[in-house]
Design a protein around this nucleic acid. Structure first.
Lengths: 250, 250
DNA sequence: CGTTTGGTTGATGTATGTCAATATTAGTGG
DNA sequence: CCACTAATATTGACATACATCAACCAAACG
């Protein structure tokens, strides 16, 4: 399933194009499967890179490392995401893309994808949708980092992961558990807090009976409470969650 | 669109295409000048909006307001920026665009711009460049909010404003003063800290002899110290400082 | 096995938030 | 032009969320 139930809300006519674009891109990339070990760099920071990727298995992230050792995970990519779409327009990548877990990707040279992008509107739609979706997530994350407490951010993130996995069919639409390969230190790098504090917040979540994380598995034990916790940061779009959840929103 | 159109961003003649695109878009929008008072909403949050804007005078921002009153300025737009380019692809805008000061804009219906975008590679280049540039700034701001101290963020922001104003010719390439209509409370909303703390940091900057802000005018009195302060957050791109001003974006 | 990596917890420090008071400036209407 | 009001800026006293440092445990691993 293509990743875009929500997009259809605003542009129903594009949903089909998205699904077709997804399939067509899959067709174009299918001979190029590659595997990266956890921690490997798919794209090295501050280098030119000429490929666009489709993430098939595992999680990846766009990350910036500062000279003094600080580290920020800017975006997290889940299976089904395209990444480095911008290679089509700008070859220079300021930030690295790292494999968070062992990942399987397919890739395509930007010239080839660009040719297809120009020739086939389904492919263009799929690419543009990816860019728009990333922009949407970046906006939300700026809001979360700027205004959210550690608890709010973490709750939002765990719900976001669940929603995205459900959307692509990686888990059932109402499933409350999923595999999450990020370590607490990596969560910290994305949340903009320290690993120690991530640990403490997770402990409090666990003790509230909201979420448990063990062995890379997230189990949401009280999604209403979790949604309640994240709710100050949710925008209208994020509130469109599977009704079956009974998630309480305000 | 011609196949070569979208390659412009990789190439040396990229700058020419951008300038031509700028002019062509100006031509398309020129009959549509509008003015908004400071504080007015150009785009209301969670509404459909069908125009793409060119900011001619004054500053604007994309802003999200949370239900509990918290507020985050996601991006700041300066004269010369296009904004709401995404109207071309997604009409729904989650976040508001507000006039920070009194602004003058021109606008174009997304269908008309899209038609031009498809027909004219210069226009496509200019639009795509805007999207890529915004993405770059969002990435940097996520890093700043996630990892930077209040001082680092503010120093980065003041330098960023200066650089962008210099780039569009609003101030001389080496000028160290510019008008900045944001109040301390608005700076706080963008920086993700409180207005009181903005005030304190500005005071310390003033007392260090780095920057003075008065009557909406920023005067950088020690740009090296300021750059030093922001430097942990600077990526390779941002390090382009006044003396290398000829350099253009990747 | 020892070594490493990730997780957990406590004691303590600090950057930043909150509250509150007072200047200062900007607007507004008379 | 003044008097009145609302915004904005400034500053101090105090509170707190989160960071830092340090120890220890458990599981993975070579």
């Amino acid at each position: 399933m293509s990743a875009s139930a929500r997009f259809a809300l605003h542009r129903p006519e594009f949903l089909d194009a998205l699904v077709r674009g997804e399939d067509k891109i899959a067709e174009l990339t299918k001979a190029s499967s590659m595997t990266f070990a956890a921690g490997a760099s798919v794209i090295v920071a501050n280098t030119d890179h000429r490929f666009v990727y489709r993430l098939l298995q595992g999680w990846a992230c766009r990350s910036r490392q500062l000279a003094d050792g600080r580290n920020q995970f800017i975006l997290i990519f889940l299976p089904g995401d395209l990444f480095a779409v911008k290679s089509m327009f700008v070859t220079r990548h300021t930030d690295a893309v790292l494999a968070v877990s062992r990942i399987v990707v397919e890739r395509i040279h930007y010239r080839d994808l660009h040719a297809a992008y120009v020739a086939d509107s389904d492919i263009a739609t799929r690419c543009i949708w990816q860019v728009m979706e990333e922009e949407r997530r970046l906006h939300s994350w700026v809001v979360g980092l700027g205004q959210g407490s550690a608890e709010e951010r973490l709750a939002l993130l765990l719900l976001d992961f669940r929603g995205r996995l459900a959307q692509t069919g990686a888990i059932g639409p109402t499933s409350l558990a999923y595999n999450m390969p990020l370590t607490q230190a990596q969560l910290a790098d994305h949340l903009g807090i320290t690993a120690v504090h991530v640990n403490r917040v997770l402990k409090s979540f666990r003790e509230c009976g909201m979420v448990t994380i063990r062995d890379g598995q997230v189990v949401i034990t009280d999604i209403d409470a979790l949604a309640q916790c994240a709710s100050p940061l949710l925008d209208a779009h994020d509130r469109v969650t599977p009704e079956c959840e009974g998630a309480q929103q305000t």
